[in-house]
């Protein structure tokens, strides 16, 4: 559903051009560059807007991604590891984002800690192939999921704040 807030989120993230997946050798490198450029800009924008909420990096081939995302409530920062594979059918199908440490702690997850996406995510993604990339999957998939699930998990006492050394990020 492209409502106003989604529209605003999306206007922050550069669209991609190259329709290529990890099986498409050269074109995939081109796509990866676009992914990185779009992500770098998105993260930079988030930082500038004081709304920094994730970091990602990938293996050399760009097929495995990992990093951290965080959620702030009552001035406390809750941080989680994020990981996902780029499926062979990318970008026609979106990556399945996982938060492995929350596996088994919420019903809104599939095996391995893959987050349960809303009914709207897949149609929206399908309509925007190949323009949507990893940044969009994070903003439209993981972002809203964290906003709903984390406060709920905190209030249920399933997750609690852990003191972390400031990484200076």
């Amino acid at each position: 559903m492209v409502d106003e807030s989604t529209r605003k989120t999306l206007s922050n993230i550069a669209l991609l051009k190259t329709k290529a997946g990890p099986r498409d050798k050269e074109l995939w490198v081109q796509r990866l560059k676009e992914e990185y450029q779009s992500l770098i800009k998105y993260v930079q924008n988030n930082k500038d807007a004081d709304n920094d909420w994730f970091r990602l990096e990938s293996n050399k081939e760009g097929t495995k991604w990992f990093g951290k995302c965080w959620f702030i409530q009552d001035l406390l920062k809750y941080e989680f590891d994020v990981e996902f594979d780029i499926p062979v059918t990318y970008p026609t199908t979106a990556p399945e984002i996982a938060l492995p440490e929350l596996d088994g702690k919420t019903a809104k997850m599939y095996r391995g800690g893959k987050i349960c996406l809303s009914d709207h995510f897949k149609p929206l993604w399908a309509r925007n192939v190949p323009k949507f990339g990893i940044g969009h999957a994070m903003a439209l998939g993981l972002g809203p999921w964290l906003a709903v699930e984390i406060p709920d998990l905190i209030s249920k006492g399933v997750i609690s704040y852990k003191e972390k050394t400031e990484s200076g990020k």
Partner: peptide
């Protein structure tokens, strides 16, 4: 696409993937 108003990630060839990473 129903979302047309945002800019595209344009790739200039003088940036390598390693640099971006």
């Amino acid at each position: 696409s129903s979302i047309a108003e945002c800019e595209e990630a344009t790739v200039s060839d003088d940036v390598s993937l390693d640099e971006l990473m």
